[in-house]
Write a protein that binds this DNA or RNA. Structure first.
Lengths: 138, 138
DNA sequence: CTTTGTGCAAACGATTTGCAGGATG
DNA sequence: CATCCTGCAAATCGTTTGCACAAAG
């Protein structure tokens, strides 16, 4: 779960992206954390010590990273998008008390069979959100 | 799938809600349709012939209806909430082309086993969103 | 050097809120 | 008639956009 600067740079270049300090920092930050921060949280975290990236830049970088498939947006709460760089198949647990999101490895849930969907629907992917209460909140 | 005015009124009263023309119209409208309209779409539909409810009223009514468990918000797209009054367990198919949402009866998907979740997480419910292309869009 | 990215501020769209008047039980 | 609801407008919040300047390859 640790990534070197070279690996990160390589990933970005492999997708045809210019490597800027801002993009690097944003992607590296997402890779380094397991929570699923909002843009606001990324902004704070990144600029904690000294300014690295502006709000607008974070938004546009995330959009680009999303387009090339390096990050994903997660929609579990109304109003805010949350992001992560975990691209392997997995699901989400969403604590209804504190709002935390935890990844559920796909191995922990039996795969869903889509065979009984009515003909005509061409499924491409699916996501599962489990809602409940996490340990800290009980 | 058809509901009489009395049934609707009864449902609202059973939840301890005052029955106003606006609430009645909003809830009845949601019960009568299978798509999952946004607030904007509800506004247009409801006020087509003559004014029934304002934007603010629709928002507040939906919030109340949601709180008492008569309607649900569906989060499949960034930025907008969509609503429906189908409260039995079911899942969603979301067409990535036209954006349509179609209900998938729970019988069509084998139930998920949550037993392998790590201890500490107390699951209460889950929802599944299948993404793909619907027949109209192929 | 050409192309693409950054940052600021203004613009936007969805949702919320404050408040005065109106309707419900 | 006390309480709760409605509608308007203003306020808020997340996100997007236009544009001048700066940096990347």
């Amino acid at each position: 779960m640790d990534y070197s600067a070279e690996e990160i740079t390589k990933s970005l270049k492999a997708k045809g992206l210019r490597v800027t300090p801002q993009r690097f920092a944003i992607y590296a930050n997402l890779l380094s954390r397991a929570d699923h921060p909002t843009v606001e949280q990324l902004l704070e975290d990144l600029n904690q010590d000294f300014p690295i990236a502006s709000l607008a830049t974070i938004y546009s970088s995330l959009q680009v990273l999303k387009e090339v498939g390096l990050v994903q947006a997660v929609l579990v709460e109304e109003g805010v998008a949350r992001y992560h760089a975990q691209m392997e198949t997995h699901y989400h647990f969403h604590c209804s008390v504190c709002g935390a999101i935890e990844d559920i490895p796909s191995g922990q849930l039996a795969p869903i069979s889509l065979k009984q969907l009515r003909p005509g629907l061409k499924p491409e992917s699916y996501d599962i959100t489990i809602r409940g209460v996490c340990d800290r909140c009980q």
